[in-house]
Amino acid sequence: MTAHSAPPHLDRRALLALGGAATLGAGLAGSGVTAPRPAAAQGLVQPDDPAETVRLWPGLPPGAPASLPREVIVNRFTESGFQDRIATGIGTPAMTVFRPARPNGAALLIIPGGGYVRVVIDREGFECARHWAAAGVTCFVLRYRLPVDGWADRSRAALQDAQRALRLIRATAAAYGIDPARIGVMGFSAGGHLAASLATRHGEETYAPVDAADRLSARPDVAALLYPVIAMAAPHSHPGSRAALLGASPDPATEAANSPHTRVTTGTPPTFLLHAGDDPAVPVENSLMMYAALRAARIPAALHLFETGGHGFGLRRTEGLPVAAWPALFDRWAAAHGQM
């Protein structure tokens, strides 16, 4: 296969337009991004965001509307008590790169949640990337397009971004010190739906190839799905994610086609699932359905269910709970599959 040169990296101005550095909020004036208060003003000691951000598409993303949405970054510090940014209006999908001091050859494409109406930057993105980068894993946090923003094929826009991101990581593996056979995906909530869709639909042609990277496989080598949205049909669907992705009244065939547990094949990678039984947003049956489908297809899979934990806990909201063990559980599982 033809080697692919590294994708274009954003300069400082473009990075700020993507909301890349919260502590540089003053520089966002006039960019269309709502800047959060600097971390120091909030009494926080917040590490700087990485300066390395990789655009997914050399030109406009597939199916772009006449006017691209304008990205807005909001910090929900007042409600959460910690840096907790969300992004909406994503017109230039990208990956933020977290390079470890000593790469161990593994990589993770991290896909935060947000109900397909926002992307949760910190809690399910940057915080997890810092954690695994400290262990030697090169991490790429995906900021993907949202189906509600007028893309021509709303149900495929985010999947197009996920496929393209995985291919770009694989195409530039040597430059990052990555083994191209050790690239995993980790997704949370609606990001778990996107990660599961990538794991089950990686071979589906969702966009016209744009360069040599698109000749490469988009299959992740392992998938980790944390409190994932899986079902698109009642009674176990997450109504908000379903409506954002498919519209108000999708037909049963569309629901089934976009429910990853119906798309599991022998090409689906080994999968790690984790859910809390008291999740008030995404019923635990979503993980149970996915696990059952993986078992039926004889795909190696691990399912961890915890009595308590709620939803959206990431790494931060687990203190004092048994679910706090989940990163170590994932590490051991991934290592058993030669990925960590």
Rank of each mutant, 00 (worst) to 15 (best):
T2W: 14
P7Q: 09
P8D: 11
L10N: 06
A14I: 08
L15N: 14
A17I: 02
G20C: 04
T23R: 15
A26M: 11
A26S: 13
G27F: 10
V33C: 10
R37A: 13
L44Y: 07
Q46F: 13
P50H: 10
T53Q: 14
T53L: 15
R55K: 12
L56P: 00
W57V: 00
P62Y: 07
G63C: 08
A64G: 03
A66H: 11
L68N: 03
E71M: 09
V72E: 12
I73Y: 05
E79P: 01
E79M: 06
D84M: 08
D84W: 13
I86N: 02
G89F: 10
T92L: 06
T92D: 12
M95A: 01
V97I: 11
A101L: 08
R102F: 05
A106P: 05
A106R: 06
L109M: 11
I111H: 04
G113C: 07
G113R: 07
G115D: 01
V117P: 03
V117G: 13
R118H: 10
D122Q: 04
R123T: 00
G125W: 01
C128H: 14
C128R: 14
A129H: 03
R130K: 05
H131D: 07
A133L: 09
A134R: 12
A135H: 15
G136V: 05
L146F: 11
L146S: 04
D149M: 06
W151N: 00
W151T: 00
D153G: 03
R154Q: 11
A158S: 13
A158H: 12
L159I: 00
L159R: 06
A162K: 07
A162Y: 07
I169R: 04
I169P: 04
I169N: 01
A171V: 08
T172C: 11
A174D: 14
I178V: 13
I178H: 04
I183D: 07
V185R: 01
G187C: 02
F188C: 00
F188T: 01
F188K: 05
G191F: 11
G192E: 07
L194V: 04
A195C: 09
A196W: 13
L198K: 10
T200I: 04
H202I: 06
E205M: 15
Y207C: 05
A208T: 15
V210G: 12
D211Y: 13
A212N: 14
A212F: 12
L216N: 06
S217E: 06
R219Q: 14
D221S: 09
A224D: 08
L225V: 07
L226W: 13
P235N: 01
H236P: 00
H238L: 03
G240F: 06
A243S: 13
N258R: 11
H261L: 02
T262F: 15
V264P: 02
V264I: 11
T265I: 04
P269S: 01
P269F: 08
F272R: 09
L273F: 05
L273R: 10
G277H: 15
D278A: 07
P280Y: 10
P280T: 03
V282M: 12
V282G: 03
L294S: 04
A296I: 02
A296E: 14
A297I: 05
R298N: 13
P300F: 05
A301C: 06
L303E: 04
H304F: 15
H304Y: 13
E307N: 07
G309E: 03
G310S: 05
G312A: 02
F313T: 00
R317D: 10
T318G: 04
E319H: 15
L321C: 02
R332H: 13
W333N: 01
A334L: 08
